[in-house]
Design a protein around this nucleic acid. Structure first.
Length: 464
RNA sequence: GUAGGUAUAGCUCAGUUGGUUAGAGCACUAGAUUGUGGUUCUAGGGGUCGUGGGUUCGAGCCCCAUUACUUACCCCA
């Protein structure tokens, strides 16, 4: 055991006090905006039944679900017989025998499960937010963790595109409150993507099409074309796709040319109509003075996102000039609860990736300095007599809601001062025999170094 | 799953063509300072050089294997 080196599983982190202050600043900011728009908080368990999660995220996603091993002895009779299967059977069969629970992979699917279970207690439309960790058995890399926090807001039971528009404003407001200004909110619509696949005559390849064109800014046009060819498109298809992929200009210009391209696709036109309506709402909400004057909202036809349950609007937020992936995403899903037996309920939601936002704010040095949350005053401890004298003072300070602590041992003063300094405590009260006699305590301002002799009451007054 | 990189003190990292006793900064402890932190100076503790093999008179350094971490791809927040 001597050489045992403690560590945490890869992709997970400890959060120390200074980090927690910053993290809570992010969580609190986002939560306050959610509340302002009428969302109420819920929490769901860290683990879900495995079959609640499987099949919701596609084949790739299913592989990334952390499974929890069942308790108990598998190899006792009669269970042992269940394991008597040949090598030709895959490990999926084994998983079903030894695992029936898993850590949540995102907050949307557990929310859908929640809505179905509590449908009789919920009045629709139901607007909820949720800030909790999720887990993915991914290979960690920069900006990618195996345990990370999502901050989700979703509405179920409302078809109105006002919700979509408000999400744009929520993104904008929350990120600006956090000091971030250089970001882009990208908007697309699954119906437009379907329309494009329809026009080409290969609606069945929509997923392949979206996966390929989603990579435009990463691998460039040539890369996308190569990937499209690999995925079953031919040169004629690509000639039709090219002008759509390379669409440029303002949002209005893009919409105008898309309308022409998609003129014969009912679905596609519907998607365009939805985008226009969202833009209209956003415009009205912003123009009335409560919104930001310049929203970084951009129609991006290449935006696809992997989750296959989206049916309408698709969101993604990117921080510019930072080498970190998207810091948020979301969209409209018409039938998520259908998988749990509740049909015809539509939902739309967004998510903030808190850990990535943290990395972005850190990289751009956007954390405010004054986010310290520490003890306000430390009382030094000379000896048992001084300690006795200090205890009621300590109580009095705390009664006034001043966070205070007494050094718990009569250590050297130097040590006690270093402690206060290391913990960034702004004030120190020194109590020695002189102070006990006179009743005037020495209050030291650690920043300026100034000291003054004050009564207990005036100290309390000064620090309150 | 695929491809790179890294592994030396608690932390961040030096370490020359392979050569005697393993280096720095930070942090920690003590002293300079018997009632005063940050800056400074001095001293001290702290190492099986990831692990296992190999080459060599000699390996922190070269070779092979292995494990962990990390970056990129796939995918994603």
């Amino acid at each position: 055991m001597a050489n045992f080196k403690p560590s945490v599983p890869k992709g997970t982190r400890d959060f120390s006090p200074t980090e927690m202050v910053k993290r809570n600043y992010i969580f609190d900011t986002i939560k306050s905006v959610f509340k302002k728009y009428g969302y109420q908080e819920i929490q769901t368990p860290s683990m879900e039944n495995l079959d609640t999660l499987t099949g919701k995220y596609g084949d790739e996603g299913d592989k990334l679900i952390f499974k929890i091993l069942n308790s108990g002895e598998y190899l006792n009779e009669p269970k042992k017989k269940l394991f008597d299967f040949g090598a030709e059977e895959n490990s999926a069969r084994l998983v079903s025998l030894i695992s029936e629970k898993a850590l949540r992979y995102d907050l949307t699917v557990p929310f859908a499960r929640y809505v179905v279970m509590h449908q009789n207690d919920i009045s629709f439309p139901f607007k909820r937010f949720q800030v909790q960790p999720v887990w993915r058995a991914d290979r960690p890399q920069k900006g990618r963790y195996r345990e990370f926090y999502q901050c989700d807001a979703d509405v179920v039971g409302s078809e109105s595109l006002l919700n979509e528009a408000e999400f744009v404003l929520i993104y904008d407001e929350a990120l600006r409150k956090l000091g971030l200004t250089n970001f882009t909110i990208k908007l697309n619509n699954r119906k437009i993507l379907s329309g494009i696949a329809e026009i080409i005559g290969k609606p069945e390849l929509i997923v392949d099409m979206t996966v390929a064109i989603d990579k435009l800014d990463k691998i460039g046009l040539d890369g996308v074309i190569k990937e499209l060819l690999d995925r079953g498109f031919n040169d004629t298809d690509i000639d039709k796709l090219k002008p759509v992929i390379l669409l440029e200009g303002s949002n209005e210009e893009k919409l105008r040319s898309l309308k022409q391209v998609l003129a014969s696709s009912e679905t596609g036109l519907k998607g365009i109509g939805e985008i226009e309506q969202i833009f209209g709402y956003v415009h009205q909400l912003s123009a009335s003075g409560i919104g930001p004057s310049a929203l970084n909202l951009q129609l991006d036809i290449t935006l696809a996102r992997g989750l296959n349950y989206y049916t309408g609007a698709i969101f993604e937020v990117k921080a510019n000039n930072v080498s970190i992936g998207s810091i948020g995403g979301g969209g409209r899903y018409d039938d998520l609860t259908g998988m749990f037996g509740l049909k015809g309920l539509t939902g739309v939601g967004i998510s903030f990736g808190a850990d990535r936002i943290y990395d972005v704010l850190e990289e751009l040095k956007l954390f405010p300095e004054s986010t310290e949350e520490t003890t306000k005053v430390l009382i030094t401890n000379f000896d048992s007599e001084a300690e006795k004298f200090a205890l009621p003072i300590l109580a009095q300070l705390r009664a006034q809601n001043i966070s205070a602590e007494l050094y718990p041992a009569s250590a050297k003063l130097k040590k006690q001062m270093s402690y206060a300094d290391g913990k960034n405590i702004p004030y120190v009260i020194l109590i020695g025999s002189e102070e006990i006699q006179s009743g005037l305590l020495t209050l030291k301002n650690m920043k300026s170094g100034d000291q003054e002799k004050l009564t207990i009451n005036s100290i309390v007054e000064k620090l309150a």
